[in-house]
Each structure stands twice: as C-alpha cells, then as structure tokens.
Design a protein around this nucleic acid. Structure first.
Lengths: 194, 194
DNA sequence: GTCTATATTATGATAGAC
DNA sequence: GTCTATCATAATATAGAC
C-alpha cells in the first residue's frame, strides 16, 4: 500500500510526487504526448530535479508501471480483506467500473490505452502491461473458482467478464458516452451469477 | 470502393500511395510515433512531394480517417451484396476477426488503438473514430433486426457483440496471444444465434 | 537535493531548383 | 509534380551553480 507521506524522507516524497504526476499525465495525455515540460508543470519541480530522481523519461515510465502493478495488487487485496465471499468481491470489480465510468469514458482504461500506445513495438512495455492484466485475470478466475466453477470454467468466465469490461471502456471512450456503463452493467452482473 | 490504379492520374496515384503507407504506419506504430521520415521511407517518395499532396501531417491523418470510413462502409456493403441473409452476414463479421487475428493480436484493433491515442484530447479525431464505430454498430444492429429482434433488443445484441470483439482485441494484443480469438469465437457465434 | 542554463538531437514545415 | 536543401522549433538529456 501507499506509504504515509509523514514517514517519507524528502527525496522519497519528491520521487512519489513525480510518479503520481507522470502516471496522471501518461493516462490523460498518453506517454508520447506527455513532454518533460508537462511533468515539470504538473509537479511544480524543476527539470533538473526530476532528472536527479529519474535519469530518463523511460525510467519514469518503468517506475509508473511498477507503481500501477503494485496499486492493482493492493486494490484487489483490499477487496479480499474487506469481503469474505467471492460474490461480493466480483461485485466490487463491476462497481469500480461504474464508480470510475466518468474518467474511463473520458480517457479509456488506463492500462489498455497505455498498452495500445506502447505495446505496438516495445516488447518490454507490452509485458509490463501484461503483468497488470494477468493480476486482474487471475484474481477474477480465483473468485469464480470460489463460486464453485472448475478451474477451466472459471478462467473462461473471468475472460468473458474481463473482455466485456475492456470492450465497454473502448466503446464508452470512442462514443464519449458514460451511459454505456450503466446500460451494460445489468449484463455484467449476470455474468457473476453462478 | 478502391479505384483501379490504371484509371488514376499520376498525382492521384501518388496521393493514394501516401495514404496507404500512412494508414499502415499509423496502425503499426501509432500516429505520434510515426515520423514524416517514416512515411518518406515507406512510400519511397521525397518529403517535398508528400508535402505537395498533403500540407501537414494532420491533413494526412484526416485523409486516412476518411479512407478508413469509406473502406469500412465498402466492406459491409460487399457483405450485404454477397449474402442475402443476416445470419451469414454476422458470420462474416466474426470470421473477419478470426482471419485477421494475427494482425489484430500484433497491433490491436486499428480503429480502437488510433482512437485511444488521439481521442484523449482532440475532440475532432474522437468524432472521426466514432463515425467508424457507428457505421459498424448500426450495421450489426440492422442484421439483428433482420433476425427478428426488436429495434431495442437488436441494438443491445449488437452492442454485446461489438464490445466482446473490442475487448478480445485488447486482451489478445496485451497478451500477444492470438489463440484467444479462437477460444472466444464459440461464445461469439452463440451471440448471433437468434 | 534542488535549481538554472545549455547542448543535442530529431521533427514538422518551408523554399526554391528542376 | 517531384526533388534537394534549409529553417524553426520542441523535446530529451546534460552540466554545473547553489
């Protein structure tokens, strides 16, 4: 989970601030459309200071990926702690789409759009995206197993739910229409009725 | 449809050649990752000549969009002419995914990835992507109506099929695993059984 | 650790010869 | 209509003062 700011040293805080801003910008503008100067504006730090903490833009990207992977795992672990039953946990997944629908519509899925931009040529970045997707797919599969499905069937159900969610993000983004999320939520909820 | 090269004037042929190369590059590398010099290499033309036909990179992009919209309409119209029944036409849609699975896995859906890259800030480009998506969604809806569904239900079924296809493209791309297409094709085929 | 200033490249766009 | 050559700019990366 996220460190409490008060317990961080100054350099650590700065590093964290850079990462937060970069993550936001890479999501909202895209990686290549985010210039170094954008990160300067967003953080309020100097270019030199940012370079002190990350020697290149690619280094920032790698750190952003690591942060996203950790964040994804943390979120899923929190749901696991909060809800003892798989049905409620799967509900969390769908509800998180509905709660984030406004942003997801405006900018698409953060992981899919970044993967789409970076995965075309760079194999390394594609694999980092894959790690995030794998974390989610495995977690979904585990929940369906808890609902009583076989390993095989659970993975299929997880795939169906995951692809539906991703497809929904794509269409909502292209149409700039967040009502697609509520419109399809009924069907999504049906997928978790076992 | 595409003009026959023999009937084109020289300038028209050049213009067409630029468009074809740019479309390919924008798909495989992304718009911002495609430099002017890449189009020069791909076409074998000089930079000056390309500029003569399109005054800027954005002008090329706009023309690529128009070409894609026309191409999408042409493909769907061809299926309409070739197959009298809606079931066969919907089969064409699914089969086209399977036939293109290798490229779709490598680079994602050409329209979704371009929309993901360009739709984040530029409203105009998002709307051009939307026109392509709308062409497809409307066509799918029409087919489901022909199968006997009400206008409302047909649009829902079309949405489910379309989102599934898009989600599939996202996951296959991230996982670099084209077998996901064959794996999910059974479920997709079920969606067109009315 | 943080800043300002500079170097280096590469990109999109233009000018002008043929 | 097509080419070569050049310009202006914007972006990443680096150097060095405080």
């Amino acid at each position: 989970m996220e460190k409490v700011v008060a317990t961080m040293k100054q350099g650590e805080q700065t590093r964290d601030r850079i990462l937060k801003s970069a993550n936001k910008l890479f999501y909202r503008r895209g990686f290549h459309q985010t210039a170094f100067s954008d990160i300067v504006s967003e953080t309020g730090l100097s270019k030199g200071n940012i370079t002190y903490h990350f020697k290149s833009k690619d280094t920032i990207l790698a750190a952003v990926f690591e942060q996203r992977i950790a964040q994804t795992k943390a979120t899923l672990a929190a749901w696991d702690r909060q809800y003892p039953d798989a049905a409620s946990r799967l509900n969390c997944f769908i509800d998180s789409l509905l709660e984030g629908k406004s942003t997801l519509t405006r900018y698409g899925c953060p992981n899919a759009t970044l993967a789409g931009e970076l995965g075309k040529q760079d194999e390394v970045n594609r694999e980092l995206s894959q790690r995030i997707f794998d974390t989610i797919w495995n977690w979904l599969t585990t929940q369906f197993v808890h609902l009583g499905l076989s390993a095989e069937k659970a993975k299929d159900s997880a795939l169906e739910l995951f692809t539906s969610a991703q497809g929904l993000c794509v269409l909502a983004h292209v149409y700039n229409d967040e009502s697609l999320f509520t419109r399809e939520s009924t069907r999504l909820k049906k997928l978790i009725q076992i």
